[in-house]
Amino acid sequence: MGLWSYILRRLALMVLVLFGVTAITFVLTHVVPVNPVLALVGDRAPQELVDKVYRELGLDKPLWTQYGIYMENLLQGNLGTSIASQRPVAEDLARYLPATMELALAAMLVAIFLGVPAGIVSAVYHNRWPDHVARILALGGVSLPVFFVALVFLAVFYVKLGWMPGPGQLSSYVVPPPRITGMVVLDALLTAHWTAFWNGLHHLIMPASVLGWSSAGIIARMLRSSLLEVLHADYVRTARAKGLPERTVILGHALRNALIPTVTVIGLAFGGLLQGAVLTETIFAWPGIGRYATLSVTQIDVPAVLGVTLVAALIYSLVNLLVDISYAYLDPRIHYG
């Protein structure tokens, strides 16, 4: 019961946060002295046309009137129309968000799959060679720029070795699966389009690895230091004294207690994945929200920028909520009420 009211309280707070986010973004996008119409009609269009479209888009109205209109529409679930794409923002988001979610989730899997074992190995073999290897890999993940790794991976695994497919979500000859969630691999699985499933999965590996590696580094380093701390705790000594196998001591007693800070970091890393997605999506021609966000910002496409910001804030808030709830499962001593 306590947990549910906690979740409800958090969700109510989230509405306030999102409201603040729209207000700040709206003001920020209008601080820049730029005519968004020029991004739409181009530099060569005559001034009369620019002025006409400016009025048609309602950009000549005072800032607060525009914000009022925006909020009124937003409360009715209408995110407005993108200036650049001339399509409803909600439609654009629905098209781009699934691709990014698919990439981010796959990258998260890679990050956890690489980061957690690496962290454990590092701590268990503290200051011996497996620790050094894992730490070098982790350091590489954290410090090598994503775009650089992406370009090198493409040059090596795609061009030289031919193990991996090139940019994009599917090869040209593969018929895309019917759209259900918008995530190609998942849709192919759900509709049993096996060619598309394997091809899509194959295309997903490289961008997800590039993106996941950096988060894996953060996870490994965090898990290593918290495990090292926990391994010196009294209850671990007690467990060993009881004669429990080392495996049970580490995976059962130590790991669970070391996971709380790591889970926090995983939550934060998810935010980082959304950021890293901008570059990864550009290089791997991934039709995701990162590229949509970049384009919208450079074109001062206010409705699109607001839509993206709202969605990003929403995802980030939800992930944080999820992280907080998971504490209660990881550590029974934590209660919400």
Binding site: W163, M164, G166, S171, W198, H202, I205
Partner: peptide, 10 residues
């Protein structure tokens, strides 16, 4: 995963 892939790129 890469090595086991069935469809060569291109």
């Amino acid at each position: 995963c890469g090595g086991g892939g069935t469809t060569p790129a291109g």
